[in-house]
């Protein structure tokens, strides 16, 4: 079949909501876009473990410690689901991890911000995971089958992350004056970076059009961002806290919240590697990878040895 016909048949499937599966024909650019997006998503889960695992030993109670461990473990699992989904497109996991460690591949910029107080754990759960969930719920219906299935699994687990974050802030918001101040401070620092998680404005996003046509994405960056603002602007009332945006206001006409301008200069600067913690995150990843090398080798050697023993017997 000539390539034009294949492409037409492919787009036809997408238009008719038929999922694309690993061994189906697909345009190279579709394969590449999905590989990039899914592996970046996987990297984000893995790097996302760093700021949180850092607080496990400092969690204020055994309950919070158990919750945090479970959450970090989930993120590791999510990374695995996503690497596995990306691998079905033909790129090996080793290659993807190598691209992360070398700084060639990107991960969500949000994890290049530091977590300075315990309240940050709550803010990360509520705001960062909250923003991630909006994106992930949309991706449950993405056109590439393995990605969609991984997202369904992830979404089921992720909602606990956001709820525990909000609940943790709720406790602080009813605590001592110092705890209240800590809660507000964390929200102040995480609000704008969370808004940036949805990516550049639609008018400046280069990948958006094609991704929408291929139904990799089903909502634009700005649509998702607006959903997020509307959701959080209501929820924060329950905390009795304030979002650090003087322009935030309900727009009766649009039935949405208006919000202030994002600092795009900061956004691009962090994407390009100049955030507060970019280097630290990559160093931590490389350290873990290198120091774990002997474990990977030993496991292979042990499996070999066992296999040889079996064949000899």
């Amino acid at each position: 079949m000539p390539i034009e016909d294949l492409e037409k048949a492919f787009q036809n499937k997408i238009d008719n909501e038929i999922k694309i599966e690993p061994r189906d024909w697909m345009p190279e650019a579709y394969r590449k876009t999905n590989t990039r997006q899914i592996s970046q998503h996987a990297h984000s889960e893995v790097v996302g473990m760093l700021p949180e695992s850092n607080w496990i030993s400092r969690a204020p109670s055994l309950k919070r410690k158990a919750i945090l461990i479970a959450k970090v473990q989930d993120e590791g699992g999510h990374g695995l689901y996503l690497y596995a989904a990306a691998e079905t497109l033909g790129t090996g996991r080793e290659q993807m991890i190598d691209d992360l460690n070398s700084g060639k591949a990107k991960y969500s910029s949000i994890f290049n911000y530091p977590t300075l107080t315990w309240a940050d754990m709550g803010a990360v759960g509520w705001l960062v995971d909250g923003a991630a969930i909006l994106n992930q719920v949309m991706l449950c219906r993405t056109s590439y089958g393995p990605y969609a299935r991984a997202m369904v699994r992830i979404c089921k687990e992720e909602s606990f992350h956001q709820r525990q974050g909000f609940e943790s802030l709720l406790v602080l918001s009813k605590g001592t004056d110092e705890q209240k101040a800590m809660c507000q401070d964390a929200i102040n620092r995480w609000w704008w970076p969370s808004l940036m998680m949805f990516g550049p404005k639609d008018s400046e996003s280069t990948n958006s059009d094609q991704s929408m046509k291929w139904k990799i994405k089903r909502k634009t960056n700005d649509e998702l961002r607006q959903n997020f603002v509307d959701m959080i602007a209501e929820q924060i009332k329950l905390l009795g806290m304030k979002l650090p945006d003087p322009d935030l206001k309900w727009n009766e006409e649009k039935k949405h919240y208006d919000y202030g301008e994002i600092n795009w200069e900061e956004f691009w600067s962090v994407v390009k590697g100049n955030g507060p913690c970019n280097r630290q995150r990559l160093d931590a990843r490389n350290k873990a990878h290198n120091e774990g090398a002997w474990v990977r080798e030993a496991a292979i050697a042990y499996a070999e040895k066992k296999k040889n023993k079996q064949t000899a017997a």
Partner: peptide, 26 residues
């Protein structure tokens, strides 16, 4: 507010675009 600057420390000199891969090639 007591901020714990150990462990999860922001870069003193921001920027990591010069980080080199120390891992073995894939």
């Amino acid at each position: 507010i007591k901020k714990f600057l150990y462990g999860d420390i922001p870069e003193v000199t921001a920027g990591a675009s010069d980080v080199k891969n120390t891992a073995a090639p894939a």
